[in-house]
Amino acid sequence: MARWGMVIDLDKCTACQSCVVACQVENNVPSMTPEESLKGRNISWIKVVPFPEGSFPEAKIRFLPLPCMHCDDPPCVTVCPVDATNINEEGIVRQIFARCIGCRYCTTACPYTVRYFNWYEPIWPQPMEQAHNPDVSVRPKGVVEKCTFCHHRLQKARANAIAEDRAVVAPGEYTPACVESCGPKAMYFGDLDDPNSEVSDLSRSPRAFRLLEELGTRPKVIYLAEGERSGTTG
């Protein structure tokens, strides 16, 4: 059984936010009206968060693409009173919209603030809903939503694998939309339990770190810190 995880190389990230848009298009995330948008109420399953460090002239800005961490010990799952969010045996933390009662305990429990509540009925000005992805639900008002690692793509990949009499989904057959769109190839996705996969290899890199590890959440999104600038003189 695979344990899906993502590695994001911060050294390669250009902060272009292609992943953000790819996710919104793939997952039928509605765009907010300008008014709501200006209040910062956009739903964005992955967002690029700036971390300015140092002051002029030694300033650096690190940009951190922030999807759901798909923790191995997700705090959001423990607090859900109706089992509307759970972690499956492949480690994907999912929201079951049909069950969600909108109590928002999970949004509070999530230390990464990557869960979003639908305060409004999603609106697409005609005819933008033509571009809806039929593989993904349109969430109603009143439920919490979040990054699914594009779980529907796994469902399709698995269907293909079974139809072709293969036991497992081949490496590269299942890739979330954000990873697929990444221009500098800063995002990697795969099975963390497969010792030969690129992600498990990278997760053992000395540059690897996880966000808020001390909380014991055991995130499956692993970041690679910026690399050292090579070759000074000579």
Partner: peptide, 13 residues
């Protein structure tokens, strides 16, 4: 419009 600048998160318009 929602991603105009990576500096200040999703805002715009």
């Amino acid at each position: 419009q929602q991603i105009t600048s990576p500096y200040s998160g999703p805002r715009g318009w």
